[in-house]
Amino acid sequence: MATPLSSVWYTRCPAPTPLSIAHQLGWIDRQFRAAGVSVRSIRDSKDPAIRQSHFTHALDYSFRQGGNIPPIWARSGGRETRVVGITTTDEFQAIIALPSSGIRTGAGLKGRRLGVPRKPVEKIVDFQRATALKGIVSALSLEGLTHDDVELVYLDSAEANLIERGNAVFLGLKRRYPYGDELLALARGEIDAFFVKGAEGVVLANQIGAVVVSDFGFHPDAKIRINNGTPRPLTVDARFLDEHFDRVVDLVATVGQVAGWAETNPDDAVRLIANEIGVGEDAIWAANGPDIHRHLTLSLDDDQIEAFDHFKRFLLEWGFITADFDVFSWIDRRPLEAATRRAVA
């Protein structure tokens, strides 16, 4: 017998996702409120155990859209979740260096020191390290190189991944921005280059006058582009899906409406994305391209699923996940199909 649904949990990453936009527009709260269900934010909770579900997907009756490493890791660890939609929004991905390094192209990385952030983790995956390594591997592969052709310098941080908003250590900002450890190591001469991505990566590269030695976020080969942020899945826990299928269909239908809204409101869409990430709107246009508002669709295309399978194998090869699983059976098309039928009707 299904448990009566009085509330649901949600979380999203600071990234261009239709879930983030739907939340900021008030659509998510309104949709669930109409069914007598309240919506609670995982990231805004004062309970560290609840906040950790941003990575572990441990809470029942929860949904998430953002980077794909945590949900892949959680599924590999046995957490029963389902992917009910995928958004593919390409973004700036690059290896950068200082002009004084003499590195001008990806081929020039051979024999050089590349910084890789490493966080103290116990119960969650070090997604920043995995993201950096995938970017480095992709960049090197374009030059016929491998990670054995460079020196990977692991930059250990004493600070774990902090996800609570408004934490005092953020000096009044929403969150800690990435690449701090890499920037300090670069300034100290401990590394020669490192990986950046997204709007924050564009801002940082511009701020330090960096040389972009390899730029591959919009490369035609999807296997090069695939990383934590490309693509981004919308996941729900299996109990939520099994016991309250109609509410999951409501969720998918609501998030799915963002694509059409963004097409006709591009400036507003970019403003909301910038607000979510905490950067200027010009950084979004620069990092995601002039058609960012046309790439917020929620779908389940075969090439998107194959991208997940490819990235899962990378995470397995590098030891970020320890158990293999069938990505294709992780997908549940029923809510999206039902939402599509509803829209047509």
Rank of each mutant, 00 (worst) to 15 (best):
L162D: 10
L145Y: 08
R165G: 11
A132I: 04
D156K: 05
L155G: 10
D148W: 14
L140N: 08
I136S: 07
S138F: 02
V150R: 10
I124F: 02
A130D: 02
E159K: 15
D148H: 08
V121M: 09
A160R: 11
A158V: 01
V137S: 09
K134Y: 14
E164M: 11
L133A: 08
R165M: 13
D148T: 15
T131Y: 03
V150E: 12
L140A: 06
Q128F: 09
Q128H: 12
D148E: 14
A132Y: 05
Q128D: 08
A139M: 05
V125G: 03
L140K: 04
I163K: 03
I163G: 10
K123T: 15
V150W: 14
A160P: 03
L145S: 01
R129M: 15
A139F: 07
S138Y: 02
A132S: 13
V150Q: 08
V125A: 03
L162P: 00
T146W: 03
E159G: 03
R165H: 09
A160V: 04
G135Q: 13
A132H: 08
L140T: 02
V121P: 12
V125K: 06
N161Y: 15
A130G: 04
I163Q: 05
V121E: 04
S138C: 05
Y154L: 14
L140P: 08
L152T: 04
L140M: 12
S157P: 04
E122T: 00
L152A: 05
E143F: 11
A158H: 01
A160C: 06
A158E: 15
D126P: 06
A158W: 09
I124T: 10
R129W: 00
I124E: 05
E143G: 05
E122M: 07
F127V: 05
V150D: 08
V150N: 01
A139I: 01
E159D: 12
R129C: 12
G144P: 14
E151R: 05
L140E: 03
I124H: 00
V125L: 07
D156V: 09
A130P: 15
A139V: 04
E164W: 13
T146K: 03
E122I: 09
V121Q: 15
G135D: 00
R129I: 05
A160I: 02
L155V: 06
E143T: 07
E151F: 06
Y154T: 12
E143V: 07
L162M: 14
A139H: 13
D149Y: 02
T131P: 14
A139W: 01
D126Q: 01
A132N: 05
E159F: 07
D126L: 06
K134P: 12
Y154V: 02
H147D: 04
G144R: 08
V153N: 04
A132G: 05
F127C: 15
V137R: 01
